[in-house]
Simulated assay, not measured.
Amino acid sequence: MAVSPTPKSANNSALAGAALLPPSFQPELPLAVALSGGADSTALLWACVQRWPGQVRAVHIHHGLQDAANLFEAHCRALCEQWQVPLVVCKVNARNEAGQSPEDAARRARYLAMSESVHQHPDLQGVKHIALAQHADDQVETLLLALSRGAGLPGLACMPSLWIRDGLQWHRPFLSLPGAKLRECLVQAGVSWIEDPTNQDEQFTRNRIRAQLLPALERAFPQFRETFARSASHAAEAQDILNDIAQVDLAGVMDNGMPNIKNLQLLSSARQSLVLRHWLKVQHQTTPSAAQLAELLSQIASCITRGHQLHLKVGRGYVRREGAGLTWTAES
């Protein structure tokens, strides 16, 4: 459903739009903005267009997962035509595989499509920076989801405001702003957006958090967005330090391109856990569950003879013993 507020002063709305962006957000131009057609991404595109007219491109990912997908695309096309913003539409298959959540499948498909389009589409030539519209409420939801799953520091660190992936710099300039502020600015400016009908479906955990927990937190702790964000920042700092330690430890245990079992056994259990997670993530782009990692540590401790075999499901593949070291291969 499209939301079409009453337009206000164009000059005032332009100032309000540019003011949404923090001074620290200084991307290299031209800039690509991920545009879904919803309020958050519409506010981001609007703000960026006001600050850098003629230097902004939009990318819309058509998931094809719901009947409203074509309406989202049509709205994005009309909006970009009105604002004279080049638009690239990417149609993706975001169906989830067995054991994969629909949200995770859609997220992975979006990032892959965004990266490929920026690298390959002629209308996005020269783009090296991409802006995404997640805001303070999304960050809180991410933290609460991580806590509900018993996540460690990587999960509690939540979403970074800036990171590098696939040779591109990705930005989240709205992480300090609540979603209500973005909608308020759009209403004042008379900018329309599309409401995603699935946002009201409380079978999705994020929607339950948004509908049930955030209002309660607002009443009990009015500053919860700022304090939660500070906690996430502390977790991210601590994780950065652990990553540095893990990198040093990994270099110390490697032998012939593999983590050496005897070298691993010289480390404490906590350091083994840290270095194995780092090895799996950095070299193989996979993440073990807590149970998988615990079993892997147990098996490593038992590797005291040459004949002890090791073959475990870890992340999206298998860890095997190969001579004195460990290898990981993806599941076929």
Rank of each mutant, 00 (worst) to 15 (best):
P22T: 10
P215I: 07
E218V: 00
I194C: 05
G315T: 09
R306I: 09
V56T: 10
L267P: 05
G323D: 13
P86C: 01
L264Y: 12
R225E: 02
L264N: 04
S115W: 06
V3M: 11
Q134H: 03
A232S: 09
V140F: 03
G257I: 08
T287K: 00
Q55R: 15
N12F: 10
I209Q: 03
L264I: 07
E322D: 13
V3S: 06
R320S: 06
S117E: 13
H121I: 13
V88D: 02
Q223P: 05
E202R: 07
L242C: 08
L177R: 03
I209K: 04
S36N: 13
Q283V: 06
Q100C: 00
C48G: 07
P178E: 02
V118Q: 06
S24V: 14
P102M: 05
T42R: 05
S273E: 06
S298L: 10
D40W: 02
H119K: 14
A106V: 08
Q292A: 11
V85G: 04
I245M: 08
V314R: 01
R149W: 00
C303S: 14
F174V: 01
L186P: 05
A290Q: 05
C48T: 13
Q100V: 15
P102A: 07
P173Y: 04
Q203K: 10
L132T: 04
L310H: 00
A106F: 03
P5V: 14
A113M: 09
A133G: 09
L326M: 15
P197F: 04
Q120A: 14
Q84W: 02
L124H: 09
W52H: 15
R219G: 00
P23F: 13
E195N: 14
R316M: 11
A2F: 12
C90S: 15
L177G: 02
E28T: 15
H121E: 13
R320L: 10
P197L: 10
Q50W: 04
I241F: 15
L168R: 14
L15E: 09
A270L: 07
